[in-house]
């Protein structure tokens, strides 16, 4: 990450959940206040699909079918986030990636030299496994740039509405 006097590129990590939408609303606010470029990225977790195929829980046709569904989910969420940004006059670049979620986010952050990663609130970990292996936890800890987790939905929604 090169030296900058303020963040110039913000990336929001989008998943198929409400927390991601709140994070996206906050990212839109930040992008407009700070006049930043805004990126939204969704990763289709094909690694888990491959693992299920290897474990013989999935057959090949099923793996393809589920991958297609997950891609559709990703497109739907990214389109929604694009609407959130554009309705507030903020241009947004969206990207649907496939692979290992943590690795892909990390790669994208480095590739576009992101200054700030925004992500939704994580579930409370119930075990050490959750803490160490949850994708969101790992992204938050490993990302090479500053990262913020958006925790409160109602204040963010109000902030976004008034933008």
């Amino acid at each position: 990450m090169s030296f900058k006097t303020r963040p110039e590129k913000i990336m929001v990590f989008v998943e198929a959940n409400e927390e991601s939408i709140t994070a996206a609303q906050y990212a839109v606010c930040l992008a407009r206040w700070l006049n930043c470029e805004l990126y939204a990225v969704y990763v289709v977790d094909v690694k888990t699909l491959h693992d299920l195929l290897k474990a013989k829980i999935f057959v090949e046709m099923e793996e393809m079918d589920y991958q297609h569904d997950l891609e559709e989910d990703g497109r739907r969420y990214l389109n929604y986030v694009r609407d959130l940004a554009e309705s507030k006059g903020v241009h947004i670049y969206t990207d649907l990636l496939k692979g290992d979620v943590v690795a892909e986010i990390q790669r994208k952050v480095e590739e576009i030299d992101v200054d700030l990663l925004v992500m939704g609130k994580l579930e409370e970990p119930e075990s050490r496994r959750d803490f160490y292996y949850n994708d969101g936890e790992r992204i938050f800890r490993r990302t090479p740039c500053p990262a913020i987790m958006v925790k409160e939905d109602e204040p963010v929604r109000l902030m976004y509405d008034q933008l």
Binding site: T48, L52, Y66
Partner: peptide, 8 residues
Amino acid sequence: SGPHVRAL
């Protein structure tokens, strides 16, 4: 499909 895959 997302929750289904994670549960599996």
